[in-house]
Design a protein around this nucleic acid. Structure first.
Lengths: 125, 125
DNA sequence: CTGGATCCAGTACGATACTG
DNA sequence: CAGTATCGTACTGGATCCAG
């Protein structure tokens, strides 16, 4: 596949496929949860501790969405007290690779973006 | 850099770097505009025609944000009627690669996600 | 032609409180 | 422990109208 054809993937179907995945990992917590879950399967509370700043509500919502998309699987054990563990599905794992590619770009260019923003803002004054 | 270290890039700085770029390309139109602009520099109206469904307002906002981030450059020609052209900056071009990686993943797994969602939803009934 | 200004609906997110 | 329910806020994106 040529580079040009690859770029067309972004625009494929009016960008609907890429939109769907961006709507998921674009939200505030999903990618962070995925990256955290990549280390190991984890219980709800442990996960909340490992993702600093996330509220119960948002962790709950995020996990439910990820489960619905088939990126995370949920296993609840019939015990008292209740124990529920979350882990990435095989498909969830494959998402790590492109996500890391984006993260590398982000970390590498973050200073440039910051500089550009400050320049832009100072010109507006 | 090991795979584990790479995954940590996502969580680096509490995920701030990846968040900044996701806040940008995660919005509804930015990535579509970038992909469209990858083909060639383009005027405002032409761009609007090439990105189906985008409103004037959103194109304008999107372009200004991208310009502020240093991903797109704006050149206005002192003519009547006014002519303004947009093109990707060198940094903007480098974003194409990880974006395409994500788009490939999205297109490849879109059917699986759709299936998973339908399954999940039918179980809730 | 290239946008800026305004109004409005939907929703993402946070804080807090409550429950099996 | 692992969530759900409720409320309030702030922001996003769309439609429309206006201006240099």
């Amino acid at each position: 596949m040529s580079r040009y054809e690859k770029v067309c993937l972004i625009r494929a179907d009016g960008g609907r496929a890429i939109r769907r995945i961006l709507d998921r990992i674009g939200d505030k917590w999903a990618l962070l949860v995925i990256a955290t879950l990549h280390e190991q399967r984890m219980r709800f509370t442990h996960l909340q501790q490992r993702v600093p700043g996330i509220s119960q509500r948002m962790l709950s919502l995020t996990l439910r969405n990820l489960e619905r998309d088939g990126l995370v699987s949920r296993t609840s054990y019939p015990e008292v007290p209740p124990r529920v563990e979350y882990e990435l599905t095989p498909m969830g794992r494959t998402l790590i690779e492109p996500a890391v590619a984006l993260a590398e770009w982000a970390v590498e260019h973050d200073p440039d973006i910051g500089r550009s923003q400050r320049q832009y803002d100072s010109r507006q004054t």
